[in-house]
């Protein structure tokens, strides 16, 4: 499974693993959306810490989930983006939709 989902109170954390492209986005979307409609969380955290590659399919993934969460008053946060993924997200202006955070450099 390309995504690990944890529920923490009123929020859901989805840890995406591996490459995000048009091929993998479908499965990730299906898994995350099923959990959102089941739990109706206040906050959805998309954790990109274990993402190894991302193209513009990642933007579609975030935008689609943003619309879904917004539909019932929820929020979205994107965490642990690699430098490359962060550049793609910035290109789309996604920082306007929610909190977009880069991976902390240790």
């Amino acid at each position: 499974m390309p995504v690990k989902i944890e529920t923490q109170g009123k929020s859901i954390r989805a840890c995406i693993q591996g490459d995000i492209d048009h091929h993998s986005a479908f499965m990730i979307r299906k898994a995350v959306d099923a959990e959102i409609s089941r739990r109706r969380p206040r906050l959805l955290i998309l954790d990109f810490g274990e993402v190894t590659f991302m193209d513009s399919s990642g933007i579609g993934l975030v935008m689609g989930r943003y619309k879904l969460m917004k539909g019932f008053g929820g929020e979205i946060r994107v965490e642990n983006l690699s430098a490359g993924a962060y550049r793609v997200m910035r290109l789309a202006g996604l920082e306007r939709l929610g909190e977009i955070k880069q991976k902390e450099i240790v």
Partner: peptide, 11 residues
């Protein structure tokens, strides 16, 4: 459709 951002060429 809505799951594609329309940013392929921009990228």
């Amino acid at each position: 459709g809505s799951e594609r951002a329309g940013l392929g060429f921009a990228v």
